[in-house]
């Protein structure tokens, strides 16, 4: 599902590579944590998978597509098979929960009728039934992140990327979000999560890949946080 082959990424201003000759494979349906200290290069992996940045050398394969050689006009279509959740939720403040999720559908060409059918369903799935018409500022942090998850998942992507999704949430809420991601993973969606929340990693007992200074230092099938 996801293949990194000898990937090195050096940012123009950085002297040290952000990722240094990293090779890793992730199977369909896996739940993988990337852990490591700030600046270790874990967020760069998300950016590579989204084709927000291109690797300096090496090969990135996602959904059997070589992202490295992907033509730029094909990137939008490619991204439709990937859902993404961030620490800061990235919701549109002037749209309700329903509209935020529907927006993601409408801008990729789905009709309003499709949105009316699918959006309530996915909001129900993330546990926001009854709060469809609240604005982000009327929702708690955990609820906002649920909206973000709903938006990432509404298009039924093959892969869900989560970049520190619990970074802004208290421990209890974090665990709820993790349960939600786990549920999504059980539908067959591959989940890749970047975090440094040791609590969560220890509870989930999933595959853990630890990165330090741009290199993989540990890859454990049912790991804990260092």
């Amino acid at each position: 599902m996801i293949q990194l082959e000898n990937v090195t990424k050096t940012y123009p201003k950085g002297s040290r590579p952000s990722l240094d000759n990293v090779s890793v494979g992730i199977e369909k349906g896996e739940f993988v944590f990337f852990i490591g200290p700030s600046g270790s290069g874990k967020s760069t992996i998300i950016k590579l998978l989204l084709h927000e940045v291109a690797p300096t050398s090496g090969k990135v394969v996602v959904n059997a597509k070589d992202v490295t050689t992907l033509r730029s006009w094909k990137v939008p279509h490619f991204r439709r098979s990937i859902g993404c959740v961030f620490q800061d939720f990235r919701l549109l403040p002037n749209r309700t929960a329903y509209e935020n999720v529907a927006f993601a559908l409408e801008v990729i060409g789905k009709t309003k009728a499709v949105a009316r059918r699918v959006v309530p369903e996915v909001l129900e799935l993330v546990g926001l039934g009854g709060k469809e018409h609240r604005y982000p500022h009327e929702l708690s942090g955990g609820e906002q992140q649920r909206v973000a998850v709903a938006r990432a998942f509404v298009n039924r992507p093959l892969i869900l990327l989560a970049d520190e999704p619990t970074g802004n949430l208290d421990p209890d809420t974090s665990i709820e979000i993790m349960r939600l991601l786990d549920r999504i993973n059980r539908t067959g969606t591959t989940v890749v999560m970047v975090t440094h929340d040791s609590n969560i990693v220890n509870q989930m007992r999933r595959r853990v890949i630890e990165i330090e200074s741009g290199r993989i230092v540990r890859d454990q099938a049912r790991g804990v946080y260092g």
Partner: peptide, 17 residues
């Protein structure tokens, strides 16, 4: 910019943005 960021994220086509 927020709308544009979301549109890029969910894969709206360039012409649509």
């Amino acid at each position: 910019r927020r709308e544009v960021a979301v549109m890029k994220l969910v894969g709206a086509s360039n012409w649509f943005i």
